[in-house]
Amino acid sequence: MNFNLDSEQQLLQDSVRRFIDRDYDFEARTALIKSGSRCSAKHWDTFANNGWLAAALPEAHGGLGGSLLDTVLIAGQLGRGLVIEPYLGCAVLAAQTLLAAATPTQRDAMLPELADGSRKVALAYSEAGSRGLPEPIGTFADVASGGHVLRGVKTLVLGGTEADTFIVSAVTPIARPTSAHDGAELRLFLVGADAAGLSRRALPLHDGSWAAEVTLDGVFVPDGALLGESGTGLAALDHGLLHGTAALAAELVGAMEKTIEITAEYLKVRKQFGVPIGSFQALQHRMADMAAELEVARSMLYALLAAVASGTPEEVRNTVSQAKALIGRAAKYVCGQGIQLHGGIGMTEEYTVGHYFKRAVVADAIFGNADLHESLLAQALQQSLSRSSPQPPSQSL
């Protein structure tokens, strides 16, 4: 896979970098958070006008026809600025799930509005018992005349405080089960934020961004609001989570880059015993360790992109878990070391570096934490070894 950017990709990355440097410095971000804003309408319009919301959507539906790489380039720069707008939740996670699951008619109706920023859609899939994975699900869709009735609670809905529409995952009966064990399946439903029986509670996250808890208490959803065809729900969720995980990993790589830059500059100007502390060999070694962790994380992100481009479904699934675990742990290490090298000032709310560590901590809890994904990898390895190990010959009496 060629990891050199072409001219259009370089222009895309540069446009986001300019926005962060010019309009989204730490002081502007702090003022936005203190104002209680969960999404700046002005900034969201900028995202739309520059094509960032449309980058990975098909041209036939108002998008720019880009790929996951375009999403990664945008997310990496937004991570440098610790952007609190729901790009990850609405423009990546929900948009890609919708793209994977929707019928042609549903795509025609919704994707252009996502591309131009006039509609925000959030994916309500996570539950307290699922730990960031698509399953298990405790939300049920009971069959009713002309549709379904949804009951359940979704938590950590990214972009949910601002969404006009939710994509809700629920278990619904199969009309003609093929066996006694196939009596239900995961389906996706489009639910308006103003639907009767739906309530949402804003959840402030530790890093200054927001999520929502969505309660569905007898929400009626007509048959026309079923997203996609039967049997497509879980695959569509996996597709959305793949793109969301890659975007989150890119955010963390960008956050690590910025943390190292901030820390290196601080070591040049902070003096002790009359000399910059950056001249101390022990601190240089710690900076070198941080840079090494960043490059390992960046390589892991490249490996994920390569797996998506040419890997088997099993390879992609395992690489997603590898990336989520490795990059998440690397980000907490690098951003934590940034605080350590700043000393006491790094712990203050008024200083920049500690906020990157907060983002790394929150990111670990999104889409399943590092421990969970390492457990999934261990299970996959064990299953692979079981399949490949020779079976002992049968003994006949």
Results as ranks from 00 to 15, higher is better:
residue 106 Q to F: 10
residue 129 G to W: 08
residue 106 Q to H: 07
residue 317 R to N: 07
residue 368 G to F: 08
residue 376 L to N: 13
residue 303 A to V: 02
residue 284 Q to F: 01
residue 360 A to F: 02
residue 300 M to C: 14
residue 234 L to A: 13
residue 394 S to W: 06
residue 342 H to L: 12
residue 136 P to N: 05
residue 78 L to I: 09
residue 289 D to Q: 02
residue 216 L to H: 13
residue 258 K to A: 07
residue 394 S to C: 02
residue 186 L to C: 01
residue 50 N to D: 11
residue 299 S to L: 11
residue 328 G to N: 04
residue 337 Q to E: 15
residue 19 F to L: 13
residue 46 T to K: 00
residue 18 R to W: 09
residue 274 G to Y: 02
residue 189 F to E: 10
residue 16 V to P: 14
residue 26 F to R: 10
residue 56 A to I: 00
residue 139 T to A: 15
residue 258 K to G: 03
residue 1 M to D: 08
residue 286 R to M: 14
residue 234 L to F: 05
residue 101 A to Q: 04
residue 103 T to W: 06
residue 356 Y to W: 06
residue 9 Q to F: 10
residue 207 D to G: 11
residue 382 Q to A: 15
residue 270 R to E: 15
residue 324 K to P: 02
residue 359 R to C: 14
residue 233 G to C: 00
residue 274 G to A: 14
residue 82 L to F: 12
residue 262 I to F: 03
residue 229 E to N: 10
residue 13 Q to T: 03
residue 257 E to L: 12
residue 85 E to H: 06
residue 46 T to G: 09
residue 201 R to H: 13
residue 284 Q to G: 10
residue 80 R to D: 04
residue 32 L to R: 08
residue 292 A to G: 05
residue 69 L to N: 08
residue 365 A to E: 12
residue 194 D to H: 06
residue 342 H to R: 04
residue 302 Y to L: 14
residue 88 L to F: 07
residue 311 G to L: 00
residue 392 P to A: 15
residue 137 I to F: 04
residue 88 L to S: 08
residue 286 R to L: 09
residue 106 Q to K: 01
residue 132 G to V: 01
residue 357 F to A: 04
residue 158 L to H: 05
residue 94 A to E: 06
residue 137 I to G: 02
residue 239 H to A: 14
residue 173 P to T: 11
residue 122 A to N: 06
residue 113 E to N: 09
residue 143 V to P: 07
residue 118 S to Y: 03
residue 354 G to Y: 00
residue 218 G to C: 12
residue 71 T to D: 12
residue 4 N to F: 09
residue 116 D to V: 09
residue 332 K to H: 04
residue 76 G to K: 07
residue 59 E to S: 11
residue 193 A to D: 09
residue 127 E to G: 08
residue 205 L to T: 15
residue 387 R to Y: 06
residue 104 P to Y: 09
residue 318 N to L: 01
residue 137 I to K: 14
residue 258 K to I: 00
residue 72 V to Q: 11
residue 176 R to W: 02
residue 294 L to K: 05
residue 102 A to P: 07
residue 355 H to T: 01
residue 45 D to L: 10
residue 259 T to L: 02
residue 8 E to Y: 10
residue 353 V to N: 00
residue 293 E to T: 03
residue 53 L to K: 00
residue 166 F to G: 05
residue 393 P to V: 03
residue 37 S to I: 04
residue 142 D to V: 12
residue 204 P to C: 06
residue 36 G to E: 14
residue 183 G to V: 15
residue 46 T to I: 00
residue 376 L to T: 07
residue 23 D to M: 09
residue 23 D to S: 13
residue 122 A to W: 11
residue 112 P to V: 04
residue 99 L to R: 02
residue 17 R to W: 09
residue 320 V to G: 04
residue 152 G to Q: 11
residue 374 E to R: 08
residue 346 G to S: 08
residue 8 E to N: 14
residue 361 V to F: 06
residue 272 Q to Y: 03
residue 51 G to Q: 06
residue 196 A to L: 15
residue 293 E to N: 09
residue 95 A to M: 02
residue 334 V to I: 10
residue 166 F to D: 06
residue 205 L to S: 10
residue 311 G to A: 05
residue 323 A to L: 12
residue 164 D to T: 06
residue 274 G to Q: 05
residue 150 L to A: 03
residue 269 V to K: 00
residue 299 S to Y: 05
residue 1 M to S: 11
residue 276 P to K: 02
residue 184 A to M: 12
residue 188 L to N: 13
residue 149 V to K: 04
residue 277 I to S: 01
residue 322 Q to F: 10
residue 128 A to S: 14
residue 210 W to I: 07
residue 128 A to W: 04
residue 61 H to A: 11
residue 382 Q to P: 01
residue 86 P to A: 08
